[in-house]
Amino acid sequence: MKLKGPDLFVPLGAVAAAMLVFGVFCAALGVNPLGVYASLWKAGFGSWYSWQNTLVRASPLLLCGLCTALPARAGIIVIGNEGAVVVGGLGAITAGLSTAQMPSLVSLTFMVLAAMLCGGLWIAFSVALQHYRGVSAVISGLLLNYLAIALMNQLIEGPLRDPSSFNSPATFPLPLDHRLGFFSGTHVHHGLLFGVIGCLVAWFLVERTTFGFSMKVAGGNVRTAKLVGLPVGRLVVMAGFLGGACAGIAGMVEVAAVHGRGNESLNAGYGYTGILVAFLARQSPLGVMLFSVLVGGLVAGSGMLQRAHDLPDATITVLEGTLFLFILLSDTVYGRLKIPGGKANAVAA
């Protein structure tokens, strides 16, 4: 993928404009915006320790961003990421607990595969509904999020419940050596590798393979795709499956690296934030890498805003919403700006 001038300047300009508006919002509430941004910088990127926090947050975001970015290439807006994370996590913990007697590596492999299958089928179902039945994947995806959460609550309070977990129901824990490890000397877990590899593979798939090209044709113009004989339905559903499989792995990572068991924290909002990451990245897998770290830093800084400025944790949600609005508004600039080498570049959406 060749980066053109506007590909870089327009999103960064949108981010700057959103930060300006959010700054005015803070100032109107009597909080010094420069102080807020200084705190966010310090908590997200100010030291090696805060970088580690940011990377821990970024690792599920990389995978959740792909869950929206990959199907977007095939022309479908997927926002069922949260549900795919939850069912992926449930699949992983079920596989992990039933292979607890096997060697650690075998068990972890089963967990990854189960998570990919659960998350993948979850999103593939929603995408197939749009393609074959005309049910908006946006609506079915959000409904499936609520269904996944209900399923999770039913399972962790019922069949999967560890009887010793009283106040916050959870499953039995994974054996200690069946969890993902940490990079030495840090508290960053190996789940980050899944995210980075996922983004690189996705980039290769989208930009360098026939499959990725066919996907883009199907997403660009269904009629053209059908005329040249592409199996549009299969391509679109496959893109959904791959995206969902990524979000499923994010659930597996949360289970196998962060919590060590399945509990309510699976529904921590990474799926929703992943949608924002994908749109900020204009659905490009490499862009997802960049913006996962940026947004991961924001998420890591939300606690700091509470402590240092007495702002509620939803402050970050307001900033995220503002960013989202501005990045969409920036689409309107593309056709109008006359920058040498830049031309209208509408995201398939």
């Binding site: 807006i77 946006v138 989202f324 609005l325 969409l328 689409d331 309107t332 593309y334 056709g335 109008r336």
Partner: peptide, 11 residues
């Protein structure tokens, strides 16, 4: 122009 109303709704 060029702002998708479905994406705007998500935002």
């Amino acid at each position: 122009p060029a702002v998708n109303d479905v994406a705007a709704g998500i935002a």
